[in-house]
Computed example of a mutant assay.
Amino acid sequence: MPHMPIIDTHLHLIDQSVLSYPWLSGTEALNRNFLYEKYAVQAHRVGITHALHMEVDVAPTDIQAETDYIVGLAKRGDSIIAGAISACRPEEHGFRVFLERQQINPLVKGFRRVLHVMPDNLSEDPLFRENIQKLGGTGLTFDLCVLPRQIDKAIALVDLAPDVQFILDHCGVPDIKAGALDEWRGKISDIAKRPNVTAKISGVVAYADAETWRVETLAPYVNHVIESFGWDRLVWGSDWPVCTLGGGLATWVAATHALLSGCSQDEKTKLFSGNARRIWNLN
C-alpha cells in the first residue's frame, strides 16, 4: 500500500498550567492536560505529517496567549504543527484590530468562534456578520462548529460572505448515537451547494456510541458528506483529544481508512492532505 501522509486539520492541545479553559469543568473526561508530546507520538505512528491546531475555547483573556503558546510549539525543530486556527470574537467591536494583528502572524491560518454551545442567534448579530465579511480576501478561513439545527443559520452566514472560505467541522456534528440521519442529511445537502464551504471529516467517533459503534455505523454519515461536497471540498481532522471519547486517534485513523477502502488513491490524497495544502497554503 502506498504511503498516505495525513494532514490533521483539527488538533486540540490542552495545557492547564498555561491557559484557562472554563468549559472543561463540566467535561470530566477531558478535564486534564493533553500535551503536544503525547499527541506527536501517536500522530507519527499513524502517518500524520502536519497538523493545524484548533482553538480550544480558552477564556477570552487567553485567546492571544493560546496562539503564542502554539507558536512556541511550532518553532521546535521537529514540530509537526504547521498552522493555527485562532479563537475570535466577531460579535465584538475590537475584532477589526484583532484581525489586523493576526494577519501579521504567518502561523495563523484562520479563525473559529464556537457556535454549537452558544445561543442560536449569535451568528445573526449584525456586527458578527460584518466582521466575518472582513475575512474576504485575507486568505484566512472560518470554521463553522454548529449543531444540525443551526446549519440553516450557518448557511445564512455563508451566503452573506461569499468571498470567505468556510470549513464545516465534524461533518456538521450529527447525532450518530441516536441514529438521527434524515434532517441532518437534508441540511448537509443544502450547505454543500455553497461553493465557499469545505467539509471537515473529523472526529465523528465521538458522536457515536463509544461501546458499540462500527465502521458501518459511521458510513452513512461520512459517505453522505463525501457525496454532497465532492473530493475537492473535503479535509480530514482528528479532533484529538475529543476523539478519545470514541476510541482514540489510531482508531479514528483506521476507521477512516476503512471507510475509504473503495476510493481511488487520488481521492484519498485530496481528503488526507491535498485539499488542506491548497486551502491553507501549507508546504
Rank of each mutant, 00 (worst) to 15 (best):
A206K: 07
V235R: 03
A192V: 00
S86W: 00
D62K: 09
G237L: 10
A199Y: 08
V18R: 14
A180R: 13
L107H: 08
A156P: 08
P195K: 13
T251G: 13
A219Q: 14
N31M: 02
I14K: 04
M118V: 13
H170K: 04
E130L: 10
W213F: 06
A84C: 12
V173Q: 14
T49H: 00
I226K: 10
A210K: 13
D15S: 04
P60V: 05
P60F: 05
K153S: 14
A51G: 07
P174N: 03
A87R: 07
Y21V: 01
P2D: 14
P162Q: 01
I81D: 02
S79I: 04
T138M: 09
R214C: 15
T141I: 02
G110Y: 00
D68V: 02
L127C: 10
L122F: 05
K38C: 12
S264G: 11
C88I: 01
V215D: 08
G262I: 00
E91H: 11
E55M: 10
I167H: 00
A180H: 15
L168Q: 03
L234H: 02
G172T: 06
A210M: 11
G246K: 10
K109M: 09
D152H: 05
I167A: 11
I81M: 08
P126V: 07
K177S: 15
T198L: 05
A74Q: 01
Q103K: 15
P2N: 11
R149I: 13
R112L: 04
G248C: 09
Y21W: 02
G246T: 02
Q103A: 10
A43S: 02
V46E: 08
N31S: 06
N223Y: 01
H50A: 12
E183L: 13
S264C: 01
D62C: 12
N223R: 11
T198H: 08
H44R: 15
D175N: 15
I191M: 06
D62I: 10
V235N: 01
L245Q: 13
D209L: 12
T217I: 04
S238H: 02
V56E: 06
V158N: 04
E92K: 07
R113A: 11
G230E: 00
L157T: 06
N196F: 09
E55N: 09
A178Y: 00
